[in-house]
Every structure is written in C-alpha cells, then in structure tokens.
Design a protein around this nucleic acid. Structure first.
Lengths: 356, 356
DNA sequence: TTGCGTTCCGAAACCGGTTTCGGTTAGCGT
DNA sequence: ACGCTAACCGAAACCGGTTTCGGAACGCAA
C-alpha cells in the first residue's frame, strides 16, 4: 500500500522545526546553521522526503518543463530521428531536473492552440519545434508569447531566434559536386513540397551547384514529390521517362531516395551503375537498402543535447540570437554512386570502390 | 512583449466577484446562477483567462500527467515504434487534457530512481513502460508505489497488472509453420538475449512449432545474438557455416533480419531463393530491403491509443487486471520466403509469388 | 408580520512548497 | 554591566487555483 507521502509539514514536525526553516535548510540557505542543515538533510534522506513538484513550481513561478512538438508525419513514413532527439533533449534537461513534455498536433492551427495553452497555463517554460515552415506561425506566436524556444531547423528569416540546423544547401552542393566529379553532367533533384524551409534550402543547394558547375539547368530535372518513398518512386519514374533521362539523382531525404531506388529497379536498371543516387539524412538503415544508399549524413547524434542546452541558456536569460548553430553534413559513400554509364562523359572519371 | 497573465484574482476583480465564485462558475457548479455563470465564462473568454495548471494540479492533488519511459536502444539501432507510440499515447491522453512526459534512463537502476522520483514528487499520475524484462523491477516498484501503470509488452508473470501486447509466441509459430508449408525442414532461429520477456516468448514459439511439426531440434540452429543488425549478420554467418546449414531462418525482429539478409548475401547467396528469412515487426522499411523482407507485422498503429485509454481507465479506479489486451501479428509476404532450394524437400511445395 | 426553506455568493481553509521579514539569542568588545 | 552586531530560526505572506461552510437575500406560506 502506498503510505502517505512525507511532506514539508510532517518533516518539520518530526524535527521540531517550522516548514520555512526546513525548506531553507534543504535549499542550502546561508542563514541556517551547518548543524541544523545537516540534521534536516539527514532526516529528509531517512524519511525519503521528496518535495512536491507542483507546489514547488507553482511557488517558483517556473514550470521547469519544456515541450517538444513532434512533426506531423506524412502517411506511413515515421520520423526516424524523433526518438534520438528526445533522448538527447531529455539528457540535457535532466541535468537541471527539468522535464520533457511531448505533444503532437493534428493541424497547423492545432499546433498554435497547443502552444498557446501550454505557455499561457504556465505548463511549460520553453518549447522546441522541428522542421519549421518557411514562414512558420509557431515561431511568431512564441515570440509574441515571450516564451523561450529553440528551433530544430530554420525558417526563411532566422536572424532573431535560436536554432540548430544542418546546412542543407551546402550538403546538396556537396552531393552534386560529387556526382560531377564522377563524370555526371545531367543530374536531377527529387525534392519535397517547398512550404518547408529545409526543402527550399536543399533545392537552392542543387540549383547553386548546377549553376556553378555549368550543368544543363532543365526544369524537368527538378521533381517536387511527396515526402515519402512513394513520392520518390513516382518521381524516379517520371525522370526515367524523360527523352534525355538523368544519369544521377540527388534526393531531399533518404526515405525519398529509397523510393527512387525502387523506381530505378522497377525499370530493370541498377542503381549505382545505370543511375547514381544520393540521399540525405544518413539513416543507419541505408546500409540495408538495395543497393546500400550513398547519402549525406547529418551529425544528429547530439542535436537533442545541443537544443536542450541552448534552451536552458535562454531560460537563464541568454540572448536567443547568440544561440545559433549550423552543422555540416558529410558524404557517406556506399553503393549507389558511380560514374555515368553511357553518353557524353567528361574525361575526369575518378576511380571508385567496387560495385556490389 | 508578454502582457501579464490574467489569473483568477484579476478576473474576479474585473467582474466584482470573489475568486471562489469565479472558480465555481468556470467549473459549472450548480450553486451558481445561470446568469452569473454565463457572465463569468464570457469575460473569461474575452480576457483569455487560462487557469494555471500547476496551481490547479496542486490543489486537485492530481498531476494529470503520465510518463512514458523510452526503452534503451542498443547501439545505433533506433526504436522505430517510439514516435508512433508517443503519438497514440498523446492522442488518448489529450482527450482528457492530460500531458505526456518522456524519460530515458541510462541504466536499470536509473529507471527505478526516475520512476520513484516522478511519482513520489507528485509529478505524474501514471506510467507507461515498454519491453519489460522477464522479471522487471519496474513493475514491482510501480505496484509498491500504488501508481497506475500499463505495460507495453509483458513480464513472465502478467496476471495482476494492465498490459497491451502482441502474441510473439503465436507469431513465431505462424512464421515457422509458413516455412514448413513451403517445404522447409531445417529451420533456424536468430533471437535476442533472453532477459527480455519478448525474446523468450518468441523463442518459445519457435520451439513449440519445431516440436509440433516434428522438425529436427538442433541447439545449433538457435542463435542468440545481439539485438541489432550486426548481431543478425554474425548469427547468419555462424548458421551458414554449419555442416548442415538451415534452409530457413526466422528472426526475433526486422532489424536482426536485415543483418541476416546481409550475412546471406555476403556468402554470395540469395535470400528468398537459397535461404528463406522471416522477420518480425512489419517495419515499413522492409519493402526497401534487399530483397524486400517477409515479416510478421504487428498491428501497432493504435497501440499507443489503447495504452493511453487503459491507463486513464485505471486512474479512474478501474481494475488493472481488467485491462489486458493481446493482439496477433500477421504474416506479410514479400520476397524473402520461398521453397527450399535443394535437399529432401517434402511434396507439398506450395505455389508462391514471382521472385524479383 | 413572522417563520422557514432556497438560491446564490462571500469568506476562508487548503494544497505544499518558497521567500521575506523580524525578533530572539549569543558572542563580543569596552 | 551594557550595547552592538551577527547568527539563527519562527511567523507569515505568497504562488493560483479548488472546495467547504455559512450567511444574506429572497420568495412563499401560515
């Protein structure tokens, strides 16, 4: 049976002190004698005293809790990074005994209502959001509410708040450059709808690299697909039906790339030999794809930790603008990249690993 | 700028009433006149009054919050179901305006300390845990604390608490039976360490099916590997080195099965033709494996919802023993199952889909 | 007019902590 | 012996709600 919990009052009575004195002793106030403090803390440990957090936080006026808003997932595609991010966030917050709440909204409007409720009811003292839109109403609301927040990703205007992001534009430049180095000249991009800022950034990277390398800038080579494997497969089908199909395809994500691989195989072609494919995310699972997927890997192991640390720093009064961190993705070569098979190939065909 | 929040006191002053009256009007007490109630609720809506949750929950003595303890992930392998489960849990809890906390412990001892702290500090009114051990100290602790809880999975003794589980024993019987129907007689099992109850259950299912079908019960055919793709690959390597290697392999999970596929391919063999493989989980990603993985799929779309509903029912005074739900997995045939290639094959070789 | 029962709201205790303020005691110097 | 200061703790306000209790005002019947 659950014996009645020991609270400050009962602990104070047990010690022959008042609640105020016991509270200060527990919190290491200077105006409590060392003897009393030790006596109190010893008794608290023996009786298993645990301060009630609701009472404490009400009194402090600080909920000591942050909320992570899970991104809406499209269809069956789960967000593989959520679990990892939550773990990192929890770790960072746990060091200060802060708690982590998760919420999942049905719609954009629902998102806003949840945020409003959570901060206006004093439920949370900070918010973390992922994958913002170009002009995300959530960041505007959070600014208006004056609630500390950090963004996992960026909006179109990202100067005046805290964020942690991976440079998707740079990553796609790297990916395209890599294919160019292998000899490709006709390179396509399979992207996601552009309301999300990350989709725009990666497209920008593709366009920049196409321009910089003097490649043919054919609008047909840019396919905006559903952000899923099915979307990727459909886009690949369209691209391969082109009168002059691409020899290389860079993708907005690994999930989309998996669909592209399927679309290529459905044509009886071999990804990595007939058509090169580069994904984005660095999902571990990519090594089991058919064939193993070459990808731009994000260093997202400690994204959660960094976001949590930033948020706590802002809660402590830090300037949000001082907490902006841009990481770089790096190329992980597996088996879906190789020199182009046919056509007018340039001279600089670099060596590459054996193809499975 | 964040204007100062409107609380009960300011709302009451605005209306010329006392806080007690306003509170009761907001909560639809019968001793408040209809006119007053409407006047209060109208003003509350106009001023955007939001009751402080910390204060409310302190007064109620009910934190209206539950905690989900994330399972520890082994190595790089993420838990793909976590995001989906959280979404379902949040949905169920959200209908009653309960909040969802997540925690991740470093060790088993850490797990216990977190649970103890969360319930003893009045932080949560319920707990959800996943993947219990055979004799999981967490459920004993939760019982001792008298805290409502539900288990995603089961322990060895599961009679006296609430749980939601998929019948892993039944699923492995189905998987083995399927291979037997295809003509296999020498079937191996790649499992996970047996401290987890689910690992034991699935092994029991394998053993039961082997016995029931009169197959050779060779201890060498049972490989207990790390719960990861690497573990699966290593186990496959051992199995294929056997003087009499298996023609079919059933696995404790899809992740392990992916490793098994890799191990088979590393031998120059073709999964689904030379060796059949059946996974467990029904991960969507399996369709992108090489070749697409046949698997026992769990109906885990609404697991979170069910767990949340159960927990709320128990908080309301329901009997935990009355909330136990066992779901069944079903076979999803893709491309890694087929009739055995060589050897003494039985006569009942059933037809099957074309192999890619 | 008196008496009684409703209806409706104010007053106050309470949840369990934190923090400010003030007073008692002891120690010290002269 | 006296005064002053510093050390230490008690008393009470406060955080923002919920809930119990009692009393005022009112209507109705005798």
């Amino acid at each position: 049976m659950p014996d009645k919990p020991v609270n400050l009052k009962s602990l104070a009575a047990h010690l022959g002190l008042t609640v105020g004195t016991v509270s200060r002793a527990m919190n290491d106030y200077a105006d409590i004698s060392v003897a009393t403090r030790q006596r109190v803390q010893k008794a608290a440990a023996e009786l298993g005293y645990r301060p009630n957090q609701n009472a404490r936080r009400l009194s402090l006026g600080q909920p000591e809790t942050v909320c992570y808003l899970m991104p809406r997932q499209t269809g069956v595609t789960i967000q593989p990074f959520v679990a990892q991010l939550l773990q990192g966030l929890g770790e960072a917050l746990g060091r200060r005994n802060w708690d982590l709440l998760v919420h999942h909204a049905e719609s954009s409007q629902d998102d806003l209502e949840r945020i409003d409720r959570l901060v206006r009811t004093g439920r949370v003292g900070g918010v973390v959001i992922s994958r913002p839109l170009k002009n995300d109403p959530r960041v505007q609301l959070l600014k208006d509410l004056g609630c500390p927040f950090v963004v996992h990703g960026r909006t179109a205007e990202f100067a005046d708040y805290a964020w942690y992001d991976v440079d998707g534009e740079d990553a796609l430049v790297t990916a395209v450059n890599h294919l160019v180095d292998l000899g490709h000249r006709r390179i396509a991009y399979v992207g996601a709808p552009l309301q999300h800022q990350f989709a725009q950034e990666r497209l920008n990277g593709y366009n920049r690299a196409v321009l910089h390398n003097g490649l043919t800038s054919d609008p047909q080579l840019i396919q905006i697909a559903n952000f899923s494997d099915d979307g990727g497969e459909m886009a690949a089908s369209i691209l391969l039906d082109l009168p002059e199909p691409p020899t290389g395809i860079v993708c907005v994500s690994d999930t989309v790339a998996f669909g592209v691989l399927a679309g290529i195989r459905a044509r009886g072609m071999q990804p990595g030999q007939d058509v090169s494919v580069i994904g984005y995310d660095g999902l571990h699972f990519g090594i089991h794809a058919n064939p193993p997927l070459t990808t731009m890997a994000q260093p997202q192991a400690h994204a959660g930790r960094r976001l949590g640390d930033m948020l706590l720093a802002i809660v402590d009064g830090g300037d949000p603008k001082a907490h902006q961190e841009l990481q770089r993705a790096h190329l992980v070569r597996r088996k879906t990249d190789g020199p182009p098979l046919q056509g007018a190939v340039q001279d600089n065909v670099s060596e590459r690993e054996d193809i499975q």
